[in-house]
């Protein structure tokens, strides 16, 4: 029996206990290492960024992996959450910012969810590529609005292209990873609930789902809104992580970056999302010493991995290679058995 099967046989609460103990140990150890100075400030910043990207990837995974849509404007929802939280945090006294942060996080999430709802209802009427395009375009509209809203309002609200500065930096390592854990838990329970199964059914076959009495519009909008909610949370964390917000950083390229993370991890896979968010956040940082080459290498890796994973020739090559390796091993096994007999 493999380890995986053994783990799956354990009762749910034991599994939950094991996971939470492992997670708590991880939190404590890394926190001690950070405050002890073993992990440098630079690396601890990257670790927090990994956590934020994990939430972003998980949130987009709801819309792509579970709902089967392909929104290309996810950075827009992130921006809504980031600006909501940042504006509230700047308005409150600085000493209470850390205590209020959980509230502003949720406020950012809810604001993003409201925008997701408003946009989702008309956008989800469209199918396939048209939905991708409309979300892409909406993300860009968000960006333009955030850049230029001040001139319409007549007072400084988002500070547009001049950047929203002096946001209290209250995002901590523990806070970020608690959010990651809560996000995982909520998404996991959602997908295993009645509503989650309805969402999966819509992904698998809309027409079949509809004929089973599932309200497609309702569940599509639900999935989309929840996806936007978590993007807003990630945005709020990001705002207090950087301490400065500029609308240019929430452009179309940011959305693509998140999408690439989801596709790398495998759509609909939670573990995959976590791993790919880690790898794709650390990789550009690790390549930083190559300076101008690093984005070049990143883009080449994207192309090569896609071709390697999906092209017919490569698939054939891989099966042949695996067969050969297996043949080598089985020969050895046979020989070993023969030797034992002698």
């Amino acid at each position: 029996m493999s380890i995986k099967q053994k783990i799956n046989r354990l009762p749910v609460f034991v599994r939950a206990l094991i996971i939470s103990v492992v997670f708590a140990v991880f939190l404590v150890v890394v926190q001690i290492l950070i405050s002890g100075g073993t992990i440098s400030g630079y690396i601890s910043k990257i670790i927090i960024l990994v956590g934020i990207n994990m939430i972003l990837t998980l949130s987009l995974n709801i819309a792509t992996g579970y709902l089967g849509q392909l929104p290309l404007g996810h950075a827009g929802f992130m921006a809504v959450g980031a600006y909501t939280s940042a504006i509230i945090l700047r308005a409150v006294p600085a000493d209470s910012a850390a205590a209020l942060f959980p509230v502003t996080l949720i406020a950012g999430g809810i604001m993003a969810a409201i925008f997701g709802l408003i946009i989702g209802i008309p956008a989800l009427r469209l199918k396939g590529d048209y939905l991708d395009i409309i979300t892409l375009v909406l993300g860009e509209i968000f960006r333009v609005i955030i850049t230029n809203i001040d001139s319409v309002l007549g007072f400084d609200f988002t500070y547009g292209a001049r950047s929203l500065k002096n946001i209290p930096k209250v995002t901590t390592f523990i806070g970020t990873f608690l959010c990651v854990a809560i996000t995982c838990l909520l998404i996991y329970t959602l997908i295993h609930s009645r509503q989650g199964r309805a969402i999966l059914a819509v992904r698998d076959n809309e027409i079949a789902a509809e004929s089973c009495g599932i309200n497609i519009t309702l569940y599509k909008t639900l999935g989309f809104t929840i996806s936007a909610f978590f993007a807003g949370i990630a945005g709020a964390l990001y705002a207090s992580y950087l301490g400065i917000l500029n609308p240019a950083s929430f452009g179309f390229m940011k959305s693509i970056e998140i999408l690439v993370m989801v596709v790398f991890g495998g759509m609909g896979s939670m573990i995959g999302s976590l791993i790919s968010a880690t790898v794709l956040t650390v990789l550009p940082e690790a390549l930083r010493e190559f300076e101008s080459f690093r984005m070049l290498v990143y883009s080449l890796l994207l192309i090569v991995i896609m071709i390697f994973n999906h092209s017919d020739k490569m698939k054939r090559f891989k099966t042949v290679a695996i067969d050969k390796i297996k043949a080598v091993f089985s020969k050895k096994a046979v020989k070993g058995a023969e030797n034992e007999q002698h």
């Binding site: 792509t64 392909l70 693509i256 999408l259 690439v260 596709v263 759509m267 883009s299 080449l300 890796l301 994207l302 192309i303 896609m306 071709i307 994973n309 999906h310």
Partner: peptide
């Protein structure tokens, strides 16, 4: 989707 990501990579 993998074709789309490849296009983005290019």
């Amino acid at each position: 989707l993998s074709l789309l990501i490849t296009a983005i990579g290019v």
